[in-house]
Design a protein around this nucleic acid. Structure first.
Lengths: 112, 112
DNA sequence: CGTGTAAGGAATTCTGACACG
DNA sequence: CGTGTAAGGAATTCTGACACG
């Protein structure tokens, strides 16, 4: 499970390959980065590196652009999604801590 | 599930990135291809493209080489593994067909 | 705003070969 | 056998800019 995740998030794809995968021009891909829609990492020499996750986002961006959505609107949408995700992540982390505490009690491992 | 598969098998990583990922020199990576241990695909222009799966195999190769195993021995090992896998795949396919036939009967959808 | 293009340079990749062993 | 290296060329990628709209 951890493993599948790394394949999807690992930034190893060059812009040329991303261009083929998405059908977008390199110019477009770089521009979406300039507009803060996508965040590739850089290799030692400075070449952009993308993940499969980035590729999927670019395809999503392409679809929205076709519908006439502006880049700043797309950015807003992603921002909202991120806020929502973060809220859920926090929720789960708190649940995790509570669970850990109860399990501790069941095991009679409380300190005080 | 299909999806996770494609991330792992999709050949999109350039030799430079593979070199960083595996710690092997490009020379070594190309040589292992020459010895039929690894099978990258090629981009339009002829650049080698590797999958995460290929990267894992290269790491495995590197480990074996460190143990002093020769490339032709490594090739043999992979060949044996492949034969075994193919046998199991065939087995599963036959099972699948049988299951499909029985389900057909249960649905009363036989022709003759 | 979003995208194309020409520009010049730097890094990438490719192949075939020589080297050592 | 396995790997390093120098060689020369072709394709890749990068940035900043001008263009159109």
């Amino acid at each position: 499970m951890e493993n599948e995740w790394s394949y999807k998030e690992r930034k190893v794809i060059s812009i040329g390959a991303v261009s083929e995968l998405t059908g977008l021009s390199e110019r477009q891909i770089r521009y979406y980065e300039e507009r803060k829609l996508i965040f590739p990492s850089r290799s030692d020499r400075g070449n952009r590196k993308y993940s499969f996750s980035d590729v999927e986002r670019l395809i999503d961006i392409a679809n929205k652009r076709e519908e006439g959505v502006r880049t700043d609107e797309i950015r807003m949408e992603y921002k909202k999604e991120k806020v929502k995700e973060d809220r859920e992540t926090r929720k789960k982390m708190i649940q995790g801590q509570l669970n850990a505490r109860f399990m501790g009690q069941n095991n009679g491992k409380r300190f005080s």
